[in-house]
Nucleic acid binder design. Structure first.
Length: 1034
RNA sequence: GGGCGAUUAGCUCAGCGGUAGAGCACUUCGUUGACAUCGAAGGGGUCACAAGUUCGAACCUUGUAUCGCCCA
């Protein structure tokens, strides 16, 4: 064997071997009926393996490998998410490099481009996962845009639509002006930025005035003046153009005199200044700004609420790119319509078509419009003014220089404001009133909440459950439509609304005039009818059915599919025109067009747990592996994904998708900082694998996976676990050099076959069994760190540090029986180490497994042990070996204290050795002498002067080193021990002397304390005696 | 502002009712026949602070302080 494991060459070779053997296929190595299924959270198809994936894939791999070795029928289901926005962005960037845009292509051609990209560059992460050693069933790899997955998505949409869980509506949504699509609340990041708050005057209508009175806390008047305006404060002046009201708090006495009156929006052409009402609402904060808030229902979520409550019209001001609208009627006409509404005229159902952007603002960017609003208002003298603070300390200005600074300046507060940004686009999100599709989450949230409340689904750590409740109990409707091209297109078709009102058509027949009238009247404004179905054919019949009710000849029109509404209008009018000439109804067409929007990516990933298994087909895999077992994912997608899977699975499958959710935190660098390219602190898992091997990275991942813990990954740690691998490697190398491994015959010996008689062997067998119990218990409760630590402590701290050393006398100088028993035991122990470590460190263990013997199966498929600690732990062997270890350590320590050269062999004395101590010595004298570098043991009645004392249970040992010893130093050493001992004794005596302790504490605790006290007192006596002896010399 | 959490050795973190642990770092010694990616020995902590519950608190309760994260 080489001195170290060469991960670089071995790991790809081993992975290849596993894959070729089908080691990770669903059901591989299954020897029982129980299944174990984990769904990989599908990485974005654009994704690369980062430390977060590496971490959470390691945990899933550990569990899956462990269960597979236990004979479960396992499936670790891999796959990729089509990631709507992210993927479209990647491909758009590529086009941009060639100077092209998405819109240079047709939708179909652009989607073809994305598929081409996906085939060549997508899914890199899957190759990288193989380097990590992730054992997924790659042949089953799914993709959320696959044909059968698509079927599942469409079926769920249609079913939920039919159940009334999905609806279309005009609501205020988060709009991303870069991607020109709606996004969900979760895709918005609120970031605090430096902003400003402007204060403006809204003049009262009809030159009205009122007494404005401000009072302090005690009710004393601090300001009284006559005002002809109401002052408002805003961070978004550009939205003033769409104001529908000014709101004040109902308790605000300052504005009570003018509530119900009208005021004027101080911007736009003078001739068409709009008047808006002053209303009361609980929303305004009296202490914030002026206490009065302008209400722009179409551009702010809070204002939207106020507007809805108070029936204030909503005026949309911006287009899909976030620029001021340039469509619709000229401003003067639009403003007149709005004015009529404000003064009590009937508002149309939808006021958003009214464009209230003044002509000279149309087409301006949001920020340009803001600057212009501020400039216009200030120029007109309607900005609130304050004394210029620059004048306060401007006494020494030089006359004749710059023009004198103004005495008053506009009141603009610098303020931190929370601004919404798109998590992908990083541009400022605009609340926009648009038609979108929503999941009525209220209707499907119930079972998802109950599942966790009743404990059917367990979220770990437990704190995750509180967060889950909090979010789901306050859940908002989920906006699922996206104005993108890449994704599952919404399966809804629209048609022109031909429902002709009775008063227009008392005869039930449409004559040509009426038909033409239909067109001229603008079916645009009449609305649309829609039907939802899996495909055009299935909605076609619904439209035909609808039309059967409308008057002939239109009831005979044949339903055809066209691209969009414009084409539908065109085709429809052409067919009507033809009809007016021919009077032949058979050529009449009723064109319908499909909703162009696609579904939120999370809508499809919400179906992942069953969509990947072939649903809606009732496949054998679906029957076998659904519902799955555990979901391991980052806390950050608890809402995005976990909650939605819970809702969707319950809505569609009527059951929970898994029974356990394991949440982990975001991975950070060694200092706990978020990793980011700009900070330059990104750790690339592949670089770590190149440097230290995948096993080291995996072990580090497992070791830091404390429940709910902060995850800080550092190269030092990974390096440390590479060293651990080397340690294991060399223990095996030692075994190999000492003929431990028979590589000629298949090794099948069970622990019972060992018939170990020697204490050392019996001890290590017991330690192995204890470790197995610890590892099982840890993995059962997802405490990966405990499993890793137990294995590290066992392999390094027990096997390498002690067992290998203890074995040397028997392997090198022992008789044949001793030697062969020890060889067999060591072979078994090392095999157990490899088996138990395999889920965490699969590569090095598989390599050693196959190097160290002929095997029935690869390690990846080797049976996980089932022996019990209770059957294998030998209490006596345990006591004896711990005594031996204790004696060796104490002797080494004493030697080091008095600076005995490490290599020197020294004599050892003992007094008062009891029978147990004597037998422990007799059984292990060879190895004690070897490891503590002892020449000989002599029983004495009393120690000579200048003897270093080693107190032990069952006897006092001493090193006669009078010539080496520094008496003062040795007394100091012993006194330090006494001090420590004194503290312990104090605690023990304190407890035992307290009568309440004996009565209240459990018996075993009392007994343990008594035994402890006995031992400590014995030790105390030994040390006291030793000090006394030394003082005789000193 | 609301919610969740953290504060333990120089660093990174376990422990979450029986009196303090690991790894790394540090100091000293050491090429003894698996391993210097190593071995041996050692130093280092009023477990953030305060009060309470308890025979007993790092651990439970309540406050305080500081720091994170999520949501407004």
């Amino acid at each position: 064997m080489e001195k170290t494991f060469d991960a670089t060459t071995a790991e790809p070779r081993i992975y290849d071997m596993w894959e070729k053997a089908g080691a990770f296929k669903a059901g591989a190595n299954a020897s029982r009926d129980e299944t174990f299924c984990i769904m990989l959270p599908p990485p974005n198809v654009t994704g690369f393996l980062h430390v977060g994936h590496a971490f959470n894939h390691t945990l899933m791999d550990i569990l899956t490998r462990w269960k597979r070795m236990q004979g479960y029928d396992t499936l670790w289901q891999p796959g990729l998410d089509h990631a709507g926005i992210a993927t479209q962005l990647v491909v758009e960037k590529q086009l941009a490099e060639k100077g092209e845009k998405r819109t240079d292509y047709s939708r179909k051609d652009f989607i073809t481009k994305i598929w081409e990209w996906k085939e060549t560059s997508g899914g890199m992460i899957q190759q990288q996962d193989k380097r990590l050693g992730a054992g997924m069933d790659w042949d089953r790899s799914a993709f959320t845009m696959d044909e059968n997955f698509h079927d599942a998505v469409i079926k769920v949409f249609v079913d939920m639509y039919n159940k009334g869980f999905i609806y279309r509506g005009k609501r205020l949504v988060n709009w991303d002006p870069h991607f020109e699509t709606a996004i969900s609340d979760l895709e918005v990041e609120n970031i605090e930025v430096d902003g400003h708050m402007w204060h403006f005057k809204y003049p009262l209508a009809g030159d009205e005035t009122y007494e404005y009175v401000e009072k302090d806390e005690d009710g004393n008047v601090t300001l009284r003046e006559t005002r002809d305006y109401i002052a408002i404060a805003t961070t978004r002046p550009e939205t003033m153009l769409g104001d529908g009201a000014v709101a004040v708090h109902p308790d605000d006495t300052r504005y009570a005199p003018i509530v119900g009156k009208l005021c004027e929006i101080p911007v736009g052409p003078k001739a068409q200044r709009r008047l808006i009402p002053i209303i009361t609402d609980e929303y305004p904060d009296m202490t914030f700004g002026s206490g009065a808030v302008k209400i722009t229902g179409a551009h702010d979520f809070n204002d939207y609420g106020v507007a809805k409550r108070n029936d204030i019209p909503l005026y949309a001001l911006m287009d899909t790119k976030g620029a001021m609208r340039a469509d619709g009627l000229p401003y003067a006409e639009a403003a007149a319509q709005a004015q009529a509404i404000a003064q009590g005229g009937a508002a149309p159902a939808d006021t958003t078509p009214i464009n209230l952007v003044p002509d000279d603002y149309r087409g301006l960017d949001r920020m340009e419009a803001r600057a212009k609003v501020i400039a216009d208002i200030t120029a007109e003298g309607l900005a609130v003014m304050i004394p210029n603070p620059a004048l306060a300390d401007a006494n020494d200005e030089v006359p004749g220089e710059d023009p004198a600074p103004p005495a008053f300046i506009p009141y603009v507060e610098a303020k931190k404001i929370m601004q919404p940004f798109g998590d992908r686009s990083k541009v400022v999100i605009e609340p926009m009133l648009t038609d979108q599709w929503f999941v009525d989450t209220d209707q499907i949230v119930g079972p998802a909440l109950d599942a966790v409340r009743t404990g059917q689904v367990k979220i770990m750590p437990e704190s995750g459950e509180k967060v889950y409740y909090h979010w789901l109990e306050n859940i908002e409707p989920w906006c699922i439509s996206r104005q993108l091209w890449w994704g599952h297109q919404i399966p809804v078709w629209y048609g022109l609304d031909l429902g002709v009102a009775d008063e227009h058509n008392p005869s039930g027949e449409l004559d040509e005039v009426e038909l033409l009238g239909l067109l001229l009247d603008g079916m645009v404004h009449r609305g649309e009818v829609m039907h939802c179905g899996a495909d055009f054919d299935s909605v076609k019949s619904s439209f035909v059915f609808d039309n059967a009710d409308i008057p002939s000849p239109l009831s005979h029109a044949s339903v055809i599919e066209v691209a969009d509404k414009a084409e539908a209008m065109e085709r429809f009018s052409a067919s009507l025109a033809e009809y007016t000439v021919t009077q032949d109804p058979t050529h009449l067409v009723f064109p319908v067009w499909r909703d162009p929007d696609v579904l939120d990516t999370w809508f499809s990933s919400g179906l992942w747990p069953f969509g990947t298994l072939g649903w809606p087909e009732n496949t054998p895999e679906l029957q076998k592996y659904f519902p799955g077992d555990v979901l391991i994912t980052g806390q950050d997608i608890l809402f995005f994904w976990v909650a939605r899977m819970m809702m969707m699975s319950n809505a569609v499958m009527d059951t929970d998708p898994f029974h356990t959710v394991y949440l982990h935190q975001l991975l950070r660098d060694a200092k706990g900082e978020k990793m980011s390219k700009t900070r330059g602190n990104v750790i690339d898992p592949l670089v770590m694998i190149d440097a230290y091997g995948a096993d080291a990275l995996r072990f580090a991942n497992a070791q830091m996976a404390a429940m709910g813990g902060v995850l800080k990954i550092s190269e030092d740690r990974i390096k440390g676990y590479r060293n651990f691998g080397t340690k294991l490697w060399n223990a095996c190398r030692f075994g190999e050099m000492n003929g431990v491994f028979d590589t000629q015959t298949v090794r099948t010996a069970s622990v019972q076959d060992l018939h170990a008689t020697h204490t050392v062997n019996r001890w290590i067998i017991g330690e192995t069994a204890k470790t197995l119990a610890q590892v099982n218990a840890a993995l059962e409760s997802y405490r990966f760190n405990d499993a890793a630590n137990a294995l590290y402590a066992f392999v390094w701290g027990k096997v390498c540090d002690w067992y290998v050393e203890f074995s040397k006398p028997m392997l090198l100088d022992g008789n044949e029986t001793e030697k062969s028993e020890t060889q067999a035991t060591m072979a078994w122990v090392i095999d157990q180490c490899l088996i138990m470590l395999h889920p965490i460190m699969p590569f090095i263990t598989e390599e050693l497994w196959q190097t160290l013997g002929k095997r029935e199966k690869m390690l990846v498929h080797t049976d996980w042990p089932t022996y019990q600690a209770a059957d294998l732990v030998d209490e006596n062997a345990d006591l004896e070996m711990n005594w031996v270890i204790n004696l060796i350590e104490s002797t080494r320590s004493a030697r080091a204290q008095v600076h005995v050269p490490a290599g020197a062999k020294v004599p050892l004395l003992v007094t008062g050795l009891d029978t147990r101590g004597q037998s422990a010595w007799d059984n292990n004298s060879v190895l004690i002498q070897r490891l503590a570098r002892i020449q000989s043991l002599t029983r004495v009645d009393s120690f000579p002067k200048g003897c270093v004392t080693i107190p032990m249970d069952g006897g006092t040992f001493g090193l006669p080193l009078a010539d080496l010893i520094d008496v003062k130093e040795e007394i100091a050493r012993l006194e330090k021990s006494m001090q420590k001992l004194g503290k312990e004794l104090g605690g023990l005596r304190g407890r035992l002397n307290n009568p309440n302790f004996a009565t209240s504490a459990p018996d075993d605790v009392v007994a343990e304390a008594r035994e402890n006290l006995r031992l400590r007192e014995e030790e105390e006596a030994q040390i006291k005696a030793a000090i006394a002896r030394l003082q005789e010399i000193g």
